[in-house]
Simulated assay, not measured.
Amino acid sequence: MATLVRHGANRIVIYSEDHRPSHVHVVGPEHAAVFLLNCNGDPLSHGPVEIRENHGFKGKDLVPIVALIEANLEKLCAEWRRVHGDY
């Protein structure tokens, strides 16, 4: 697991021994969430980002995290592909 992006005390990570579909884990000191990336073969049409699981984040706290994931979506999908192969 490598931290790809940070947001305050939260880290956005992709686990190397994880399963499909493409997704990231947002790990904080007391909270965690999983977001589907919906990566595909065309970098211009990745997304939309969807929340799959939320363990303790308040809705308002997820808004800037989603924006950060969306802003880094191409990078995150490229890393998913590097670690896990084709989508």
Rank of each mutant, 00 (worst) to 15 (best):
P21Y: 15
L37V: 02
E30Y: 03
A67I: 13
I14C: 11
P48C: 05
H31S: 13
N10G: 08
A67S: 02
H25S: 07
L76D: 00
E74H: 13
F57T: 13
L44T: 14
I12D: 07
L76G: 06
A71G: 09
H46M: 08
R52F: 06
I65G: 02
K75F: 08
G41E: 11
G47F: 02
E74T: 14
H19L: 12
P21G: 13
V63E: 04
V26L: 03
H23N: 09
R82I: 07
V83T: 02
K75H: 08
F35W: 05
R11V: 15
E53F: 07
L36C: 06
G56K: 10
E70L: 09
V13Q: 12
I12Q: 06
N40S: 11
K58A: 11
S22H: 12
V83K: 01
R11I: 15
N54T: 15
I69C: 00
V83E: 05
R82L: 06
V26I: 10
C77K: 01
A78E: 05
S45V: 10
E30A: 12
H55F: 02
H55G: 14
E17H: 07
A9K: 15
V63L: 12
N72G: 07
R81P: 01
K60L: 08
D61I: 10
C77N: 06
E79D: 06
H46D: 09
P48N: 12
C39F: 01
G28T: 04
R11W: 15
I69T: 06
K58Y: 05
R82P: 00
Y15I: 10
L73K: 05
L76A: 03
V63M: 15
A33W: 02
V24E: 03
I12M: 11
G56A: 03
A32T: 03
P29Q: 10
G28M: 08
A32F: 07
A67V: 02
R82N: 05
E53Y: 02
F35S: 04
I51E: 15
D61K: 12
L68V: 03
H23C: 07
I12C: 03
L37Q: 05
G28H: 02
L44N: 07
R20W: 14
C77G: 03
G47A: 12
R52A: 11
E53K: 10
V66C: 03
L76W: 01
H23A: 14
G41W: 08
D61Y: 08
L44P: 00
R82W: 02
S22L: 09
I69R: 00
Y15N: 12
C77R: 00
V27K: 04
K58G: 10
G47D: 08
A71V: 09
D61F: 04
L73P: 01
L36N: 07
L62D: 11
R82G: 01
K75E: 08
E17Q: 13
H19Y: 15
N40Q: 07
I51W: 10
H31L: 03
H31P: 00
G59F: 12
L62A: 02
P48Q: 15
I69P: 00
D18V: 04
H23V: 12
R11H: 14
S45P: 02
E70I: 10
H84L: 13
P21M: 08
N38G: 11
R6P: 11
C39E: 05
